[in-house]
Write a protein that binds this DNA or RNA. Structure first.
Length: 247
DNA sequence: AAGCGACACAACCGCTGCTTT
DNA sequence: GAAAGCAGCGGTTGTGTCGCT
Protein backbone atom coordinates (compact mmCIF):
# COMPACT_ATOMS: atom_id res chain seq x y z
CA UNK A 1 0.00 0.00 0.00
CA UNK A 2 2.62 2.48 1.09
CA UNK A 3 4.92 1.15 -1.53
CA UNK A 4 2.18 1.56 -4.09
CA UNK A 5 1.66 5.17 -3.07
CA UNK A 6 5.32 5.99 -3.08
CA UNK A 7 5.58 4.55 -6.53
CA UNK A 8 2.67 6.71 -7.52
CA UNK A 9 4.44 9.75 -6.12
CA UNK A 10 7.35 9.15 -8.38
CA UNK A 11 5.02 9.63 -11.31
CA UNK A 12 4.04 13.10 -10.14
CA UNK A 13 4.98 15.75 -12.57
CA UNK A 14 7.41 18.46 -11.53
CA UNK A 15 8.52 21.76 -12.89
CA UNK A 16 6.63 24.71 -14.28
CA UNK A 17 2.89 24.62 -14.52
CA UNK A 18 1.27 24.83 -17.92
CA UNK A 19 -1.81 27.00 -18.57
CA UNK A 20 -3.97 23.92 -19.08
CA UNK A 21 -2.88 22.57 -15.70
CA UNK A 22 -3.74 25.89 -14.11
CA UNK A 23 -7.14 25.70 -15.71
CA UNK A 24 -7.75 22.17 -14.45
CA UNK A 25 -6.77 23.10 -10.93
CA UNK A 26 -8.79 26.30 -10.93
CA UNK A 27 -11.89 24.55 -12.20
CA UNK A 28 -11.53 21.78 -9.68
CA UNK A 29 -11.17 24.15 -6.76
CA UNK A 30 -13.98 26.37 -7.96
CA UNK A 31 -16.22 23.31 -7.97
CA UNK A 32 -15.02 21.45 -4.91
CA UNK A 33 -13.35 24.12 -2.83
CA UNK A 34 -9.91 24.28 -1.26
CA UNK A 35 -8.40 21.72 1.04
CA UNK A 36 -7.72 18.00 0.90
CA UNK A 37 -4.90 18.57 -1.51
CA UNK A 38 -4.10 14.94 -1.86
CA UNK A 39 -7.60 14.40 -3.13
CA UNK A 40 -7.30 17.39 -5.41
CA UNK A 41 -4.21 15.97 -7.01
CA UNK A 42 -5.90 12.64 -7.62
CA UNK A 43 -9.33 13.75 -8.73
CA UNK A 44 -8.53 16.82 -10.74
CA UNK A 45 -6.71 14.75 -13.31
CA UNK A 46 -3.49 16.60 -12.65
CA UNK A 47 -0.38 14.52 -12.38
CA UNK A 48 0.84 16.73 -9.58
CA UNK A 49 1.40 16.11 -5.92
CA UNK A 50 -0.93 17.62 -3.37
CA UNK A 51 1.74 19.93 -2.13
CA UNK A 52 2.41 21.19 -5.59
CA UNK A 53 -1.29 21.83 -6.20
CA UNK A 54 -1.63 23.66 -2.94
CA UNK A 55 1.38 25.82 -3.62
CA UNK A 56 0.26 26.69 -7.12
CA UNK A 57 -3.18 27.65 -5.93
CA UNK A 58 -2.03 29.63 -2.93
CA UNK A 59 0.76 31.46 -4.68
CA UNK A 60 -0.55 31.99 -8.14
CA UNK A 61 -4.10 30.98 -8.98
CA UNK A 62 -6.02 32.12 -5.95
CA UNK A 63 -8.38 35.01 -6.67
CA UNK A 64 -7.52 38.52 -5.51
CA UNK A 65 -3.81 37.93 -5.67
CA UNK A 66 -1.71 40.92 -6.51
CA UNK A 67 1.21 40.46 -8.82
CA UNK A 68 3.81 42.92 -9.87
CA UNK A 69 5.83 45.51 -8.09
CA UNK A 70 5.48 46.18 -4.41
CA UNK A 71 4.31 49.63 -3.50
CA UNK A 72 6.37 51.80 -1.18
CA UNK A 73 3.78 51.21 1.54
CA UNK A 74 3.99 47.47 1.14
CA UNK A 75 7.74 47.56 1.18
CA UNK A 76 7.74 49.67 4.27
CA UNK A 77 5.38 47.31 6.03
CA UNK A 78 7.51 44.32 5.07
CA UNK A 79 10.54 45.97 6.57
CA UNK A 80 8.74 46.79 9.77
CA UNK A 81 7.18 43.40 10.08
CA UNK A 82 10.42 41.66 9.32
CA UNK A 83 12.13 43.58 12.01
CA UNK A 84 9.51 42.43 14.41
CA UNK A 85 8.87 38.88 13.37
CA UNK A 86 11.96 37.83 11.49
CA UNK A 87 11.46 35.40 8.65
CA UNK A 88 7.85 34.69 9.48
CA UNK A 89 6.79 35.17 5.92
CA UNK A 90 3.27 33.91 6.23
CA UNK A 91 2.57 36.29 9.07
CA UNK A 92 4.06 39.18 7.17
CA UNK A 93 2.13 38.26 4.05
CA UNK A 94 -1.01 38.14 6.13
CA UNK A 95 -0.76 41.88 6.55
CA UNK A 96 -0.32 42.49 2.85
CA UNK A 97 -3.60 41.84 1.08
CA UNK A 98 -3.09 39.95 -2.15
CA UNK A 99 0.50 39.05 -1.42
CA UNK A 100 1.72 35.58 -0.63
CA UNK A 101 4.35 34.40 1.78
CA UNK A 102 6.44 33.16 -1.11
CA UNK A 103 6.25 36.50 -2.84
CA UNK A 104 7.19 38.40 0.29
CA UNK A 105 10.05 36.02 0.94
CA UNK A 106 11.33 36.34 -2.61
CA UNK A 107 10.99 40.08 -2.51
CA UNK A 108 12.93 40.23 0.69
CA UNK A 109 15.64 37.91 -0.56
CA UNK A 110 16.08 39.67 -3.85
CA UNK A 111 15.42 43.32 -3.16
CA UNK A 112 15.46 44.25 0.48
CA UNK A 113 18.31 42.07 1.64
CA UNK A 114 20.70 44.16 -0.42
CA UNK A 115 19.49 47.37 1.08
CA UNK A 116 19.46 46.21 4.66
CA UNK A 117 22.32 43.76 5.03
CA UNK A 118 22.62 44.55 8.72
CA UNK A 119 19.19 43.09 9.14
CA UNK A 120 20.24 39.71 7.75
CA UNK A 121 22.87 39.43 10.35
CA UNK A 122 20.45 40.26 13.07
CA UNK A 123 17.88 37.74 11.94
CA UNK A 124 20.41 35.01 11.42
CA UNK A 125 21.91 35.50 14.80
CA UNK A 126 18.52 35.59 16.38
CA UNK A 127 17.47 32.46 14.56
CA UNK A 128 20.57 30.63 15.45
CA UNK A 129 19.53 30.78 19.04
CA UNK A 130 15.96 29.81 18.38
CA UNK A 131 16.10 28.00 15.14
CA UNK A 132 13.03 25.92 15.63
CA UNK A 133 9.99 27.04 13.74
CA UNK A 134 7.60 28.70 16.08
CA UNK A 135 4.21 27.37 16.67
CA UNK A 136 1.59 28.85 14.40
CA UNK A 137 -2.07 28.46 14.96
CA UNK A 138 -3.81 25.99 12.71
CA UNK A 139 -6.96 28.03 12.77
CA UNK A 140 -7.50 31.03 10.53
CA UNK A 141 -7.17 33.13 13.63
CA UNK A 142 -3.99 34.93 14.52
CA UNK A 143 -1.10 32.79 15.58
CA UNK A 144 0.85 32.37 18.73
CA UNK A 145 3.62 34.87 18.73
CA UNK A 146 6.93 34.24 20.30
CA UNK A 147 7.65 36.95 22.74
CA UNK A 148 11.36 36.96 22.13
CA UNK A 149 10.78 37.80 18.52
CA UNK A 150 8.31 40.49 19.43
CA UNK A 151 10.61 42.28 21.77
CA UNK A 152 10.55 45.99 21.18
CA UNK A 153 13.74 47.67 20.24
CA UNK A 154 14.51 50.58 22.36
CA UNK A 155 15.85 53.81 21.22
CA UNK A 156 19.15 54.44 22.74
CA UNK A 157 21.91 56.57 23.72
CA UNK A 158 23.97 53.66 24.87
CA UNK A 159 24.67 51.96 21.59
CA UNK A 160 21.72 49.72 22.09
CA UNK A 161 20.36 50.08 18.62
CA UNK A 162 17.98 47.69 17.01
CA UNK A 163 20.40 46.89 14.27
CA UNK A 164 22.82 45.40 16.69
CA UNK A 165 23.08 41.69 16.26
CA UNK A 166 25.00 41.45 19.48
CA UNK A 167 22.15 42.97 21.34
CA UNK A 168 19.65 40.71 19.71
CA UNK A 169 21.70 37.78 20.82
CA UNK A 170 21.67 39.18 24.29
CA UNK A 171 17.90 39.14 24.30
CA UNK A 172 17.48 35.66 22.97
CA UNK A 173 20.35 34.29 24.94
CA UNK A 174 18.88 35.72 28.05
CA UNK A 175 15.51 34.31 27.24
CA UNK A 176 16.75 30.93 26.18
CA UNK A 177 19.25 30.49 28.90
CA UNK A 178 18.44 29.32 32.35
CA UNK A 179 17.60 32.77 33.64
CA UNK A 180 14.78 33.15 36.05
CA UNK A 181 11.34 33.94 34.82
CA UNK A 182 11.54 37.51 35.99
CA UNK A 183 14.89 37.98 34.32
CA UNK A 184 13.48 36.67 31.09
CA UNK A 185 10.55 39.03 31.27
CA UNK A 186 12.92 41.83 32.02
CA UNK A 187 14.98 40.97 28.99
CA UNK A 188 11.93 41.04 26.81
CA UNK A 189 10.44 44.21 28.14
CA UNK A 190 13.74 45.99 27.86
CA UNK A 191 14.19 44.84 24.32
CA UNK A 192 17.48 43.47 25.43
CA UNK A 193 18.78 46.86 26.34
CA UNK A 194 19.77 47.63 29.80
CA UNK A 195 18.82 51.07 30.91
CA UNK A 196 16.30 53.39 29.40
CA UNK A 197 13.53 52.26 27.19
CA UNK A 198 12.82 55.35 25.24
CA UNK A 199 9.79 54.06 23.44
CA UNK A 200 6.62 52.99 25.01
CA UNK A 201 6.38 49.30 25.72
CA UNK A 202 4.16 47.37 23.38
CA UNK A 203 0.65 46.63 24.57
CA UNK A 204 1.15 42.90 24.27
CA UNK A 205 3.61 42.88 27.11
CA UNK A 206 0.79 43.47 29.52
CA UNK A 207 -0.89 40.36 28.22
CA UNK A 208 2.08 38.09 28.54
CA UNK A 209 1.33 35.22 30.80
CA UNK A 210 4.66 33.56 30.18
CA UNK A 211 7.94 34.61 28.73
CA UNK A 212 7.67 32.34 25.75
CA UNK A 213 4.44 33.09 24.05
CA UNK A 214 1.33 35.10 23.85
CA UNK A 215 -1.82 33.07 23.76
CA UNK A 216 -3.77 32.79 20.57
CA UNK A 217 -6.84 33.98 22.40
CA UNK A 218 -5.28 37.13 23.69
CA UNK A 219 -3.68 37.88 20.38
CA UNK A 220 -6.98 37.39 18.65
CA UNK A 221 -8.70 39.62 21.12
CA UNK A 222 -6.20 42.42 20.94
CA UNK A 223 -4.79 41.73 17.53
CA UNK A 224 -6.00 44.77 15.63
CA UNK A 225 -4.98 47.09 18.41
CA UNK A 226 -1.50 45.65 18.41
CA UNK A 227 -1.18 45.76 14.71
CA UNK A 228 -2.06 49.40 14.55
CA UNK A 229 0.46 50.00 17.26
CA UNK A 230 3.05 48.06 15.33
CA UNK A 231 2.40 50.07 12.25
CA UNK A 232 2.92 53.34 13.98
CA UNK A 233 6.17 55.14 13.19
CA UNK A 234 6.89 55.35 16.88
CA UNK A 235 7.67 51.71 17.09
CA UNK A 236 10.22 51.50 14.35
CA UNK A 237 12.02 54.76 14.01
CA UNK A 238 13.64 54.45 10.65
CA UNK A 239 16.91 55.98 11.68
CA UNK A 240 17.52 53.34 14.27
CA UNK A 241 16.97 50.10 12.49
CA UNK A 242 17.87 51.27 9.05
CA UNK A 243 20.27 54.11 9.41
CA UNK A 244 21.45 54.09 5.86
CA UNK A 245 20.17 52.96 2.54
CA UNK A 246 23.01 51.46 0.64
CA UNK A 247 23.61 52.69 -2.88
C1' DA B 1 25.74 37.18 -32.53
C1' DA B 2 27.34 34.23 -28.89
C1' DG B 3 28.77 33.32 -24.30
C1' DC B 4 28.54 34.25 -19.64
C1' DG B 5 27.14 35.86 -15.19
C1' DA B 6 23.71 38.04 -12.28
C1' DC B 7 19.20 38.43 -11.05
C1' DA B 8 14.26 37.37 -10.16
C1' DC B 9 10.86 34.32 -9.30
C1' DA B 10 8.47 29.82 -9.36
C1' DA B 11 8.61 25.47 -7.49
C1' DC B 12 10.44 21.83 -4.56
C1' DC B 13 12.02 19.76 -0.18
C1' DG B 14 12.28 18.77 4.56
C1' DC B 15 10.45 19.63 8.75
C1' DT B 16 6.92 20.78 12.31
C1' DG B 17 2.61 20.74 14.45
C1' DC B 18 -2.31 19.80 14.31
C1' DT B 19 -6.04 16.58 13.56
C1' DT B 20 -7.91 12.25 13.13
C1' DT B 21 -8.14 7.42 14.03
C1' DG C 1 -2.01 8.14 24.81
C1' DA C 2 0.18 6.70 20.41
C1' DA C 3 0.54 6.56 15.56
C1' DA C 4 -0.49 8.05 11.03
C1' DG C 5 -1.86 11.39 7.83
C1' DC C 6 -2.24 15.96 6.32
C1' DA C 7 -1.54 20.96 5.86
C1' DG C 8 1.40 24.63 6.25
C1' DC C 9 5.84 26.96 6.82
C1' DG C 10 10.51 28.49 5.73
C1' DG C 11 14.79 27.37 3.39
C1' DT C 12 16.75 26.07 -0.80
C1' DT C 13 17.13 25.03 -5.58
C1' DG C 14 16.06 25.27 -10.51
C1' DT C 15 15.12 27.84 -14.47
C1' DG C 16 14.09 31.62 -17.43
C1' DT C 17 15.41 36.36 -18.58
C1' DC C 18 18.26 40.23 -19.06
C1' DG C 19 22.37 42.87 -19.54
C1' DC C 20 27.18 43.08 -20.27
C1' DT C 21 31.46 41.74 -22.60
Amino acid sequence: MEKEESQQEIKFKKGSWKPEEDLLLTRYIETHGEGKWKTVSKRSGLMRGGKSCRLRWKNYLRPNLKHGEMSAEEEDLIIRMHKLLGNRWSLIAGRLPGRTDNEVKNYWNTHLIKRYPQCIKRVRSSESSSNKRKKVSHSPNPPTINAAQMSPHSSNSNGCDAGSSDKQETVTDSINSGSSESQKLQAISNGGCEGTVAYENPPWLASLDSYSSISVESFHEKGSEWWSWLESPLYFPEDIMYPTVLP
